[in-house]
């Protein structure tokens, strides 16, 4: 079979395509058919089964904020996934409560996805409700004012633009909120 591909270009071309498609189809087309949780939005009303909550599509203001997040490339430095690693759940917890692990059913409406690959800054999967509006405004104007040693770029053109700031804030406060993970419901606004 492979010997034939040595002298026949057509044969080599077809064989290379076939071998590629075996793995290609099995790892991209088949998985969402097997694992239904990828497409089924998170919903749980029964506290006995764990954290309650429901994933809803973003509202239009949050969508606008997400577009800004996408435009400015925030996702190059901030991931959005609490991994199945103990340190992730501890580090991205808040006021003594561990952050719940991210699950596929929390991201069903995300496009483009914002999982990210690099943490130059902290993970933002559960940032929603951790900091209030004033904190975010000051932080976007000059991150080093609140976090000395931070290397995040300043974004004055967002902080000083009420419409853009409001949208981005709304998006950030929505992050990770499908799961109502704060027992005291102590989310900042």
């Amino acid at each position: 079979m492979f010997r034939k591909a040595d002298t026949s270009a057509a044969w080599a071309f077809i064989l290379a395509t076939l071998l590629f498609f075996i793995g290609g189809l099995l790892t991209t087309v088949v998985p969402p058919m097997v694992d239904k949780s990828w497409a089924k939005p998170f919903k749980n009303a029964d506290p006995a089964k764990g954290i309650t909550g429901e994933l809803k599509p973003l509202g239009s203001l949050e969508q606008q904020g997400r577009a800004i997040y996408q435009r400015e490339g925030c996702w190059y430095c901030h991931t959005q996934q609490v991994r199945t690693i103990l340190a992730d759940t501890k580090r991205y917890g808040w006021r003594g409560v561990d952050a719940p692990v991210s699950t596929p059913d929390e991201f069903v409406f995300d496009s483009p996805h914002m999982f990210g690959t690099k943490r130059t800054g902290p993970d933002l999967a559960r940032v929603g409700g951790k900091y209030n509006e004033q904190w975010h405004r000051t932080h976007f104007k000059n991150p080093r004012e609140l976090v000395p040693g931070s290397i995040m770029p300043p974004y004055p053109w967002i902080a000083n633009n009420p419409a853009e700031f409001k949208a981005l804030l709304a998006y950030m406060q929505s992050l990770g909120r499908a799961k109502e993970w704060r027992p005291a419901n102590d989310y900042e606004k």
Binding site: L19, G24, T27, T103, F115
Partner: peptide, 19 residues
Amino acid sequence: LAFVYVWTGAHHMIHGPIS
């Protein structure tokens, strides 16, 4: 190479929210 490379994409999400 033709056979094994294409299978590996999900290793970018190890420990992440994927099966």
